[in-house]
Computed example of a mutant assay.
Amino acid sequence: MSAPSKADLKALVDGVIRAQGNDYIKDLLRRKQLPIGTNKAEFVEHLKAAIDAGEVLAQDIDDWLHEVEGWGNQHIYLYRMSIADAKHPLWSDQAQLRRMVTTAGYGRQWAANTSQAFDDTLTLTGIHALDGDRLRFEWHQGVAIEDRAPDRDFTRYEGDELVHYKAYLLRRQRTVMRFEIRPRQRLAAAFVQVPASSKDHDAAVVAMWAVVGCVRSESAFRPVNMSTVIKKVDEDTRPGPLRTNMVRLITPGAWIAYGAEASSAAYREVQDADEARSAVATMTRFTGRRSNLLYATSQSGDRKAKDVHVQLDGTRRRLWVRAQLTEVQVWELLSLLASYA
Rank of each mutant, 00 (worst) to 15 (best):
188 A>D: 02
188 A>S: 13
189 A>H: 09
192 V>I: 15
192 V>P: 00
193 Q>G: 03
194 V>G: 08
194 V>N: 05
198 S>M: 09
200 D>H: 12
203 A>G: 03
207 A>C: 10
208 M>G: 13
209 W>Q: 11
212 V>E: 06
213 G>S: 06
214 C>E: 07
222 R>V: 15
223 P>S: 13
223 P>L: 13
223 P>W: 07
223 P>M: 06
225 N>M: 03
225 N>A: 10
226 M>S: 01
226 M>P: 01
227 S>Q: 13
228 T>M: 11
228 T>K: 10
229 V>P: 07
230 I>R: 00
230 I>P: 00
231 K>V: 03
231 K>W: 03
232 K>C: 06
232 K>A: 14
235 E>T: 01
236 D>R: 08
236 D>E: 06
238 R>W: 05
239 P>Y: 09
240 G>A: 13
240 G>M: 10
241 P>C: 10
246 M>R: 01
248 R>M: 06
249 L>V: 04
250 I>T: 12
252 P>G: 03
255 W>S: 08
257 A>S: 15
258 Y>H: 07
259 G>R: 05
262 A>D: 14
262 A>S: 15
262 A>M: 12
263 S>D: 14
263 S>T: 10
268 R>D: 15
269 E>K: 08
273 A>M: 13
274 D>W: 10
276 A>R: 11
277 R>G: 00
278 S>V: 05
278 S>P: 02
279 A>K: 04
281 A>T: 15
282 T>A: 11
283 M>H: 10
285 R>E: 01
288 G>S: 05
288 G>W: 01
288 G>I: 02
292 N>W: 12
292 N>T: 15
292 N>K: 15
293 L>G: 04
293 L>S: 06
297 T>I: 02
